[in-house]
Design a binder for these strands. Structure first.
Lengths: 93, 93
DNA sequence: ACAATAGGCAAGTGACTGCTTGCCTGTCAA
DNA sequence: TTGACAGGCAAGCAGTCACTTGCCTATTGT
């Protein structure tokens, strides 16, 4: 559970999820260039790879090896658990 | 936005939110003893105070000074934003 | 007034994080 | 087969984090 929040705590990782939400099955290089284009983030390939490892460990990203490519896909199921854990009630008022 | 997730990334802070969800307007000392009783967490008073600062900065906890007491109350509004940001769709299947 | 209670400030520490650098492995096309 | 392409491994580094320790302020009851 805490792994999910730790994964989401980083801005670069949230940007990665945003990109994966728009298009499934993206490779590491695709995601790198998209971070630069649309989010003005220019980390190294390794840095992005490590971020994806964190997201995968949290269950937020599913990976499929296909030939020499490694395709990443978002899984929003863990995010649904968040809403369930703390049911939204009225602010204490 | 990232502040919310950073706040939620820590287990002790999530436990604090759980306690505040059960009872509003708890003091620092009340929360300390409840952490020990129900969650087997025995951090120092200062540690808990710092956690509450983080939760307050994230907008998840609202504070009201009353005499020598400082009463903490949860505000679940920021949690609702999470569900909105990444709408739950079917897992990639 | 004064002691007990509730909380705050600030420095220090060990662990973790995000990131980089350098090099290596595996896959595909010509 | 060999070179280009996609990705992986591991060490190192600066910054942040959770936590403690020691001391200080403010409010309350007697």
């Amino acid at each position: 559970m805490g792994d999910i929040f730790k994964a989401l705590a980083d801005g670069t990782r949230r940007a990665l999820l945003d990109e994966l939400l728009e298009r499934d099955e993206q490779t590491l290089f695709e995601l790198c260039s998209r971070l630069a284009m649309k989010h003005d983030l220019t980390p190294t390939r390794q840095a992005v790879s490590q971020h994806l490892d964190v997201l995968e460990a949290a269950g937020l990203v599913v990976v499929e090896r296909r030939g020499r490519y490694k395709l990443h896909t978002i899984d929003t199921a863990p995010l649904a658990q968040i809403a369930e854990r703390w049911p939204t009630r009225k602010a204490s008022s």
